[in-house]
Nucleic acid binder design. Structure first.
Lengths: 187, 187
DNA sequence: ATTTTTATGGAGTGATCAGTCAATCTAAAA
DNA sequence: TTTTAGATTGACTGATCACTCCATAAAAAT
């Protein structure tokens, strides 16, 4: 892992544990095994580091979700695959998942460019569009469906993190909650 | 409004806008129209202020929800009343609602005492218990139902904040989303 | 081989911040 | 009226922090 990655990994770990406020850049550098100045060689400011960390983390997640998509899958299968992969990734990358939410409710959220936002939601937006064309959703605002979908993932994730079930039971919960979600939003 | 309240109100406003990191105690005091030292007369540390602000905000919300409960209401009516009141309070107190979520994903969350937690969830817990006794929920872990319930509120809130609908349409969305939720979790 | 660019280090700096403190004010109790 | 206790002030401080700067090393380009 090169130094830039080391810095990002260290920042992630410390931000989740101590918050943005509670983690000085000096501690990040130390944890990354790197000099103070090196951090600022890769990221002009601490804020830049925070935003970059968010964008890359989100990018990793979206790439993972996209990789699960199979040609020939139905819309429901595709959505279930995204839902499942989101939760599994969130459970195997808990700090990352937590950081994404932490970032979302921080003032830094406003600093994400429209371009990055578009890239990070393209996959979901595409499927939503398809679903509308196929007319399979209940007559609700698409933004509402999107919000409910997202929060359903977060809610299930929260439960799974607290419950800490064995893998098989976890799978079962993921299947069940998707079924609940699907009957909730489709006709 | 006494000085303590002024300080809490100022802190809330600034925390939501600039984050915990981005708002120095000096700015809070200034915004509250109070001297630096006065802030520390009421709150020993900045962290104490943050935690106190959370507890009082949550207390206000729970009191508001409890006040909506009517004797003789059925369980479904009671739950719908909590759901509706949560969303309406969240929309008329957006900074407060945002702060609660912001706090939830911060390291300060760990500092809430079990006692406070219990007081803040008593109302919900009671209804959940009742629902279990009446056996009206689908056979799902009660913690899962609780999580899904909470996140459903957040998801709907997020949509309503972004959509900014007139009051009547807003009411309609709240009714509809409760119906969706209710059919999702009950038998 | 030489130049240029990039990477790394770490001591140093000015600014900022959380929290202190001694002085003053207020108002109620004695 | 006098005392006492709490409220309020704002200048002050020691610590900390984000970030700079310059020296050096490594790598790339010429």
């Amino acid at each position: 892992m090169d130094k830039e990655q080391e810095i990002l990994a260290a920042a992630l770990k410390l931000f989740v544990e101590f918050g943005f406020h509670g983690t000085p850049t000096s501690k990040i550098a130390k944890e990354a095994g790197v000099a103070n100045g090196t951090l600022f060689h890769y990221f002009k400011t601490k804020d830049d580091l925070i935003v970059a960390l968010y964008n890359r983390t989100k990018e990793t997640l979206t790439a993972h979700l996209a990789a699960q998509q199979r040609d020939g899958d139905s819309l429901e299968e595709r959505m279930k695959s995204i839902y499942t992969a989101s939760l599994e990734w969130g459970l195997e990358n808990r700090p990352q998942f937590h950081f994404i939410q932490q970032f979302h409710f921080s003032p830094h959220a406003a600093r994400i460019s429209d371009e990055d936002k578009e890239r990070q939601t393209r996959l979901h937006a595409g499927l939503m569009q398809q679903a509308r064309e196929d007319n399979i959703f209940k007559p609700l605002a698409p933004e509402l469906i999107g919000s409910l979908l997202g929060s359903h993932v977060y809610g299930t994730h929260q439960y799974l993190v607290n419950a800490d079930l064995p893998k098989q039971e976890r799978q079962k919960v993921i299947h069940e909650t998707f079924a609940l979600l699907w009957t909730m939003i489709t006709k």
